[in-house]
Simulated assay, not measured.
Amino acid sequence: MMHPAIKIGVTYTGSDEKHSNYVQWLKGSDPIEIITLQPQHTDLSCIKDFDAIVLSGGVDMHPRFYNNPNIIYPNAPLHFHEKRDEFEIAVFHESQQCQLPLLGICRGMQLINCIQGGTLRQDIGTISNAIHRFEEHDKAHGINIVKGTLLSEITGVTRTITNSAHHQCIDLLGEGLTINCGSDDGIIEGVEWTEKENKSFFLAIQWHPERMYKFHLSELPSAKNIRDRFLKEIKKVA
């Protein structure tokens, strides 16, 4: 008897090429169905039919979603996508209502932090951008993982390498969140729930595990272990 495929909803990152990285990384060789979530095509009532949600990377959130009136700052996008922001905020709330496993990646982590009442540093500055900001390619750097966290349990290490493609970061930490790792220059690289009891799996990270294969780093715990654990958690509830 064939088991039905796992069904994961992934928010559209804004580029077909980048979105395909999520699809390939999550599917691997497993019977997994990836559904693209977009404000113009997705009925929020269908979220309950998924087995898990991934909030993907992409363009900066509009600053109004973290109560900042400043829309002109270094490396700001030419256009914000407020409909995407509003849609993904609604997807997050629906996923939590349905207790679906949730993975937030890059922008996805920043979005969740803001939903929880946190704020963002609008641009991390010249020195940190040299380490973190995407130029022609992703960059790579080390992270230090906090012992005793979910991320520590998943990776089994206290230090590893990640890729990097961001110019914003968490400033004020959102309510109910705990920092699980950081970069050497002090940027928050991952968060999770402080209180995990009676909550579905949740992990949010600043890097892009879905494209670490480009660095030949896809077997590192910061990519492979996260995918493996995410799928394991999905199978528990699917």
Score class of each variant (00 low, 15 high):
Met1Phe: 10
Met1Ile: 11
Met2Tyr: 06
Ile6Cys: 09
Lys7His: 14
Lys7Gln: 14
Ile8His: 08
Gly9Val: 06
Thr11Tyr: 07
Thr11Arg: 09
Tyr12Trp: 15
Tyr12Val: 03
Ser15Arg: 15
Lys18Glu: 14
His19Tyr: 15
His19Asp: 14
Tyr22Asn: 12
Tyr22Pro: 03
Val23Gly: 03
Trp25His: 12
Lys27Met: 13
Ser29Glu: 14
Asp30Cys: 07
Ile32Tyr: 14
Glu33Gln: 15
Glu33Met: 13
Ile35His: 12
Ile35Gln: 13
Gln40Lys: 15
Thr42Tyr: 03
Asp43Phe: 12
Cys46Glu: 15
Cys46Arg: 15
Lys48Ile: 02
Asp49Val: 09
Phe50Val: 07
Ala52Phe: 00
Ile53Thr: 06
Ile53Arg: 01
Ile53Tyr: 00
Leu55Trp: 04
Ser56Asn: 09
Gly57Ser: 11
Gly57Pro: 01
Val59Glu: 13
Val59Ser: 12
Pro63His: 08
Arg64Thr: 12
Phe65Lys: 06
Asn68Val: 12
Asn70Glu: 14
Ile71Lys: 06
Pro74Gly: 09
His79Ser: 13
Glu82Ile: 14
Lys83Trp: 07
Arg84Cys: 12
Asp85Ile: 06
Glu86Gln: 14
His93Val: 03
His93Cys: 10
Gln110Ser: 00
Asn113Tyr: 09
Cys114Ile: 09
Cys114Asn: 07
Ile115Met: 10
Gln116Asp: 00
Gly117Val: 08
Gly117Gln: 08
Thr119Lys: 10
Leu120Met: 10
Arg121Gln: 14
Asp123Gly: 11
Gly125Leu: 05
Thr126Asn: 11
Ser128Asp: 08
Ala130Trp: 02
Phe134Gln: 04
Glu135Arg: 13
His137Asn: 10
Asp138Tyr: 07
Lys139Val: 06
Ala140Asn: 01
His141Asp: 07
Ile143Ser: 01
Ile145Lys: 04
Ile145Asp: 04
Val146Trp: 01
Lys147Ile: 00
Gly148Ile: 06
Thr149Pro: 00
Leu151Ala: 04
Leu151Asn: 07
Ser152Trp: 11
Ser152Asp: 14
Val157Leu: 11
Val157Pro: 00
Ile161Arg: 03
Ile161Met: 06
Thr162Gln: 07
Ser164Gln: 05
Ser164Cys: 06
Ala165Gln: 04
His166Ile: 02
Gln168Thr: 06
Gln168Met: 05
Gln168Cys: 12
Cys169Arg: 04
Ile170Lys: 08
Leu173Glu: 07
Gly174Cys: 02
Gly176Val: 01
Gly176Lys: 06
Ile179Val: 15
Ile179Thr: 10
Asn180Ala: 04
Cys181Met: 05
Ser183Ile: 02
Asp185Met: 02
Ile187His: 00
Ile188Asp: 02
Ile188Leu: 08
Glu189Trp: 08
Gly190Lys: 06
Thr194Arg: 09
Glu195Asp: 15
Lys196Gly: 01
Phe201Met: 11
Phe202Leu: 09
Phe202Pro: 03
Leu203Cys: 11
Leu203Thr: 10
Ala204Asn: 10
Trp207Ile: 01
Trp207Gln: 04
Pro209Lys: 07
Pro209Gln: 09
Glu210Leu: 09
Glu210Gln: 13
Tyr213Phe: 12
Leu217Gln: 05
Ser222Val: 01
Lys224Trp: 04
Lys224Arg: 14
Ile226Ala: 05
Arg227Tyr: 04
Asp228His: 09
Asp228Gln: 13
Leu231Pro: 08
Glu233Val: 01
Lys235Met: 12
Lys236Ser: 10
